[in-house]
């Protein structure tokens, strides 16, 4: 009785309204858009799912997964030293400050943080100015001239997009790695050093294996968040579509809600597989 009283409203809201909406979305993906009439045909069909597996859509998915993977790798490389420093070297006071310094971007305005890079990367912005000042503007031009990842300016290139993705999701990688390293007993590292291991060997054989659950946990966030994002590819980059953007335009401009619904299950499926792998690496114990 007490339980029913407590649970009634949350159950109705989260499972009824929210769960119901998700279920309805799945159902919609089995309808199809009648492209002549522009209306939705509500007889069950697999036609929409067949439309999903066209080359164009699959290359959008591949591009998104490629970006999500490279963003995840870069985040690991950048986050590891910071997390290691916080966990092993910082004094109590410094640690509190550094953890806060990682947390604040996590909670502060996502949109504004994306916007700040529009200022930084624009053709007359600070990055170009900096390179010019150092007299290596030619280097930047050479990088931008690279096929595929380059572009007319940083803010409309894949490189720019990549920098922004890493910047936005980096805190999600630092915190779980730091938590995992925090749990490595100091004696492990000392023992390894006492036994004559070079610091690099200690890192490779002792620290890294113990950091893996944290890395896997962090990568769930960086991977999943990149997979579903559509704001960053809209604001930065050459506006070639990512999964999020494709879903957005299918449901909006194209009015093809069934296809958008089917597409929405691509990141869910990819994340399902990813979580399965991450679970095997011990990611859930590190969360």
């Amino acid at each position: 009785m007490r339980l029913a009283l407590l649970l009634g409203v949350p159950l109705f809201w989260m499972v009824g309204v929210y769960g119901g909406s998700l279920a309805a979305l799945l159902v919609q993906s089995f309808f199809r858009l009648d492209s002549f009439a522009g209306t939705i045909d509500r007889s069950p069909t697999l036609a929409t799912w067949r439309d999903l597996f066209t080359d164009a859509n699959m290359s959008v998915a591949a591009r998104t997964i490629g970006m999500a993977s490279s963003v995840t790798l870069a985040s690991i490389v950048i986050a590891l030293p910071l997390a290691y420093f916080i966990a092993r070297h910082a004094s109590r006071r410094t640690k509190a400050v550094l953890v806060l310094a990682v947390m604040i971007p996590l909670w502060s305005s996502y949109l504004v943080r994306v916007y700040s890079w529009k200022l930084i990367l624009s053709a007359d912005g600070i990055v170009n100015w900096f390179f010019e000042r150092l007299g290596i503007g030619g280097l930047l031009d050479a990088v931008l001239a690279l096929p595929a990842i380059g572009g007319p300016s940083l803010s409309v290139s894949y490189i720019g997009q990549f920098l922004v993705f890493v910047y936005i999701w980096l805190p999600y990688m630092v915190l779980p790695i730091q938590a995992a390293l925090e749990r490595v007993p100091r004696s492990f590292i000392e023992a390894s050093a006492d036994l004559g291991a070079h610091p690099a060997t200690t890192f490779r054989k002792v620290v890294w294996p113990l950091a893996i659950p944290g890395v896997a946990a962090g990568s769930i966030f960086t991977f999943s968040l990149t997979l579903g994002d559509y704001i960053i590819p809209t604001v930065i980059g050459d506006s070639s579509p990512f999964i999020g953007l494709a879903i957005y335009s299918y449901q909006g401009v194209a009015g093809n809600l069934p296809l958008a619904a089917a597409f929405a299950f691509v990141p869910i499926a990819v994340m399902g597989l990813y979580l399965f792998g991450a679970k095997r690496l011990g990611a859930f114990e590190a969360l």
Partner: peptide, 15 residues
């Protein structure tokens, strides 16, 4: 918060 926002958004919109 675990699912990409766009999925929550589109599900609620169609509902």
């Amino acid at each position: 918060i675990a699912l990409p926002g766009i999925i929550t958004g589109i599900a609620l919109r169609s509902a």
